[in-house]
């Protein structure tokens, strides 16, 4: 019998290795905050983080950065009202940033999950973010070649999960979570609701179990 539920976030992230590339879902809401805290406790270092942002305040992802456990961030928007930790590290030259347009970031992750090596996009053509990249003209329009993104681990948050790892999401909590689930060797989901296999409406399953390796039930309620 398949049962992907593990009993704790500690167990869920126990084997994340130093030097891993870790995708972290979330966009304002839908962040796997308990899994991030577990990764902080777990101690893996030299990480590359793929996420939309680079941490807020001094908790969560920002704390992971502050502890010098992150070598590189791949993101679209490392600036917030309170991005103190990333700012400090960046100004000191102690963290590498790969800045990616948000849609290109999402598509590179989708490509990673779908076995596509790369794709041409008109986004960023002629700008600083396309410097050094291969370009091509198709039917009179210029495109930039972008490579797929893969990860060793994806940490995501979902709304409901069953023991196979079928997942649903809650409103804007969906964001990057479903695509990241497809692009990692090890996808770990924290879910608000543990439901029986068979209780989810098949068409409502946004992430089917094939993309999920571990599920941990963290019924923390609404995001603050």
């Amino acid at each position: 019998m398949i049962d992907k539920f593990v009993s704790s976030v500690t167990e869920a992230v126990a084997d994340v290795r130093d030097g891993s590339t870790v995708m972290i879902g979330g966009f304002g809401v839908g962040q796997p905050v308990h899994l991030i805290d577990a990764l902080i406790e777990q101690g893996a270092t030299g990480l590359t983080i793929v996420a939309n942002n680079a941490g807020i305040g001094r908790a969560g992802l920002a704390r992971l950065l502050e502890l010098r456990r992150v070598r590189k961030v791949v993101c679209s928007f490392p600036r917030t009202a309170d991005p103190v930790v990333f700012d400090e590290l960046y100004k000191k030259g102690e963290i590498e940033l790969e800045l990616v347009p948000q849609g290109t970031l999402a598509e590179r992750i989708r490509a990673g999950g779908a076995g596509v090596a790369g794709f041409y996009t008109a986004t960023a053509y002629g700008t600083k973010l396309a410097e050094g990249k291969e370009t091509c003209e198709f039917e009179g329009r210029h495109y930039v070649f972008e490579r797929a993104l893969h990860a060793d681990v994806a940490l995501i948050e979902a709304w409901q999960g069953d023991r196979w790892g079928n997942l649903t999401y809650k409103e804007a909590g969906r964001n990057f979570n479903p695509v990241m689930a497809t692009a990692a060797k090890l996808t770990i989901a924290q879910v608000q609701h543990k439901v029986d296999l068979g209780s989810l409406e098949p068409n409502a399953i946004a992430t089917p179990s094939i993309f999920v390796n571990r599920v941990v039930h963290i019924p923390y309620g609404d995001p603050k």
Partner: peptide, 10 residues
């Protein structure tokens, strides 16, 4: 300042 682009280019 670290650069930030979001979805503007897309």
């Amino acid at each position: 300042m670290p650069p930030a682009v979001g979805g503007a280019m897309d």
